[in-house]
Design a protein around this nucleic acid. Structure first.
Length: 152
DNA sequence: GCCAACGTTGGC
DNA sequence: GCCAACGTTGGC
């Protein structure tokens, strides 16, 4: 049973255009247990995700990505030179897991967060909740479909 | 740049 | 196991 997701990224560090160029990327650097658990335990190859641009003006949904690998340990946790290095982790006992995402499409227009907040349709979406900062979230199929409609 | 919200850490 | 202190996220 495939599911839908929302993944946040600061476009200054990695944007939908970067994913379009790279075709595929490991979603490294996630250091939140809830977000990790979604990748490690629930994502399946082929699941679609809304690609969300955060910490920019305006924040919003920029396009669609697709889960392109099974979960595996995030290599940056072992890299002492990486900002995501975690001394508690070892190869035999990794803490952080990720999946690869591949490019699906960039929306013709960014769907601003404010537009979702203004609409009753998205009142129960995680991303529209006050103080919601989870960087990987499940998305209901109905919401996913409505956002695709808004974008086209 | 501010600050509310929230997750994590660590002392007890 | 509680909870205060601290750090981070991310909208504004």
């Amino acid at each position: 049973m495939s599911a839908y997701w929302l993944i946040k990224s600061e476009p200054e560090s990695y944007s939908i255009d970067d994913l379009k160029r790279d075709k595929k990327t490991p979603w490294s650097g996630v250091r939140n247990f809830q977000a990790r658990n979604f990748m490690r335990d629930q994502m399946e190859i082929g699941d679609l995700a809304l690609f969300y641009h955060s910490s920019v003006s305006p924040p919003g949904i920029a396009g669609i990505a697709k889960v392109a690998s099974a979960p595996y340990p995030d290599p940056t946790q072992f890299d002492t030179k990486s900002p995501y290095y975690d001394p508690r982790a070892s190869k035999g006992n990794p803490i952080w897991f990720l999946v690869d995402f591949s490019f699906v499409k960039k929306f013709k227009r960014l769907i601003p967060l404010q537009e979702l907040k203004d609409s009753k349709l998205f009142a129960d979406m995680v991303v529209t909740q006050k103080g919601s900062r989870l960087s990987i979230q499940p998305v209901a199929q109905k919401h996913f479909g409505k956002i695709v409609t808004l974008a086209s």
